[in-house]
Write a protein that binds this DNA or RNA. Structure first.
Length: 438
RNA sequence: GUGGCCUUAGCUCAAUCGGCAGAGCAUCGGAUUGUGGCUCCGAAGGUUACGGGUUCAAGCCCCGUAGGCCACCCCA
């Protein structure tokens, strides 16, 4: 085992994995842009308080998983930093900081990048993971709720993760949630004797969480627990009904899940999560999101509604791999070079480098074999690299010519150097029009 | 943060009862001095994750640490 390793819970994305992620990132940006969401980038770290206030002091994400950073000398209040555990708080901080309330509302933003949580690693759960995030800030909905959810659904389908299930809930707002939570606590208190110890402790800190407990002893108690959907105030109930109507109109299928409570404090009203069909462990969640009508205000802005989602690209890639999909070559990132320039005189790297430089200037994807190996080895490496052509520089160079060998067809011809780039482009285009036999 | 399983070459894995650390693939070279994927031959590659203990002797048994995975907690 090497002395130095990637830190626990992180991993190197080797070219094949990097290409898959790059593919997803590009797909995400293209899709969000088509929906009118503009790219934004925020720092990978923020003042810790942005997350403590934004995400919620009592959440697992902040209490247990915040990746705190020792800054410089670490001797001032302003130097309490943390790596971002999720993108929404930072984006909302930027919205406030840059006065985006003066822009036409809502402000539609998207971001793709790494997030950090100091959690115990597991497959599909990393300390550094990639997320595709979309936010619409400044629109109370309900139509934009449906737009956002449909966008998330579209991305998952375009990515090709297969059948997914969308779980939907409304967890109320400042007007009705407190009463509901109080009623819920009362319900659990009346069953206090039957509660498992761990659940009894959570009752005090995060009562909503008891709802989705997997403890078998909780099944009976939860069955009779009040449901937030039955306790929504008129405004929330109307909002939720309208969200559903919009989703129905768009043909987005979902399942009501009254136990769905999101883990971040900022959520209000609409909450949703996506799972691969048949897999509903939390570690299988592909993504989720919801409305956060109080968050901007918490971060120092005027009261402003917002909604968004995050999709875990690592998990999307995992789901793809599980179906034997993905891993294909990425547009703009060809896995294989079109041409490899090899030389009969292994020592003459000048000629090879000069030729390949001209091919690149002409827009071709090409590399030269700059090793000192004999021709057969250079050819072998070119073929195994998946190159379409080998450009062989030998005695013909004296008369300004090279040999172009089509490694797929096995044919070859002599070409004048000034014609080389053209000839390769022509042959490549011709190849594309021949039905692939591979 | 809790509990469990695992870790041998770059990768996938062997190694009988505790008794000389191996194979395939990949890499490099040769067979073939100007022509590739096949074939054959060879080389290189190891502190058996790390540290300690037991033993004449440890990849194998014991303890600790790190990392991976699984189930929780919980998120992506």
């Amino acid at each position: 085992m090497p002395r130095f390793q990637a830190p626990r819970g992180t991993r190197d994305l080797l070219p094949a994995e990097r290409a898959s992620l790059l593919h997803l990132e590009r797909m995400a940006l293209a899709l969000a842009t088509r929906y009118g969401y503009q790219p934004i980038e925020t720092p990978l770290f923020e003042q810790a308080e942005v997350f403590e206030r934004g995400v919620g002091q009592a959440t697992e994400v902040v209490e247990k998983e915040l990746f705190r950073v020792q800054a410089g000398r670490g001797d001032g209040d302003g130097e309490r930093w943390a790596l971002r555990p999720e993108p929404t708080a930072g984006i909302c901080r930027a919205y406030v900081q840059h006065g985006m309330q003066t822009l036409p509302q809502p402000v539609r933003l998207t971001l793709t990048g790494p997030m950090f949580r100091y959690d115990r690693p597991q497959a599909g759960r990393y300390r550094q993971f990639w997320q595709f995030d979309v936010e619409a800030i400044g629109d109370p909905g309900p139509a934009v709720d449906a737009e956002i959810i449909e966008l998330a659904d579209r991305f998952l389908r375009d990515a090709g993760v297969g059948e997914t299930e969308l779980l939907l809930n409304s967890i109320g707002d400042a007007a009705c949630r407190p009463d509901y939570v109080a009623e819920l606590v009362g319900h659990y208190r009346s069953h206090a004797a039957e509660l498992p110890p761990a659940e009894r402790e959570r009752l005090e800190r995060n009562p909503l969480r008891l709802l989705d407990s997997k403890d078998p002893g909780m099944a009976a108690i939860n069955a009779t627990a009040p449901r937030s959907l039955d306790r929504l105030c008129d405004a929330c109930a109307q909002h939720f009904a309208a969200v559903r109507a919009h989703l129905d109109a768009l043909g987005v299928r979902y399942r009501l899940e009254h136990r769905l409570v999101r883990g971040l404090d900022y959520y209000t009203r609409t909450a949703f999560e996506f799972f691969p069909r048949g897999a509903e462990g939390q570690q299988d969640a592909l993504g989720g999101g919801g409305r956060y009508d109080g968050l901007i205000e918490l971060l120092g802005g005027r009261p402003t509604p917002g909604i968004g989602f995050g999709i875990g690209l690592d998990r999307v890639a995992l789901a793809l791999a599980a179906r034997g999909a993905g891993g294909a070559s990425v547009e703009g990132v060809p896995a294989d070079p079109v041409a490899v320039v090899v030389g009969a005189d292994p020592a003459d790297t000048v000629t090879r480098l000069r030729i390949v430089t001209e091919l690149r200037a002409a827009g071709l994807t090409a590399r030269a074999d700059l090793g000192q190996r004999k021709l057969a080895r250079q050819m072998e490496a070119a073929a195994r690299d998946g190159a379409h052509f080998a450009v062989i520089g030998g005695d013909e160079l004296r008369s300004g010519q090279v040999i172009v060998k089509d490694l797929l067809a096995g044919t070859q011809r002599t070409v004048d150097l000034p014609e080389l780039a053209h000839e390769l482009q022509r042959a490549q285009a011709q190849h594309r029009h021949v039905p692939a036999s591979e």
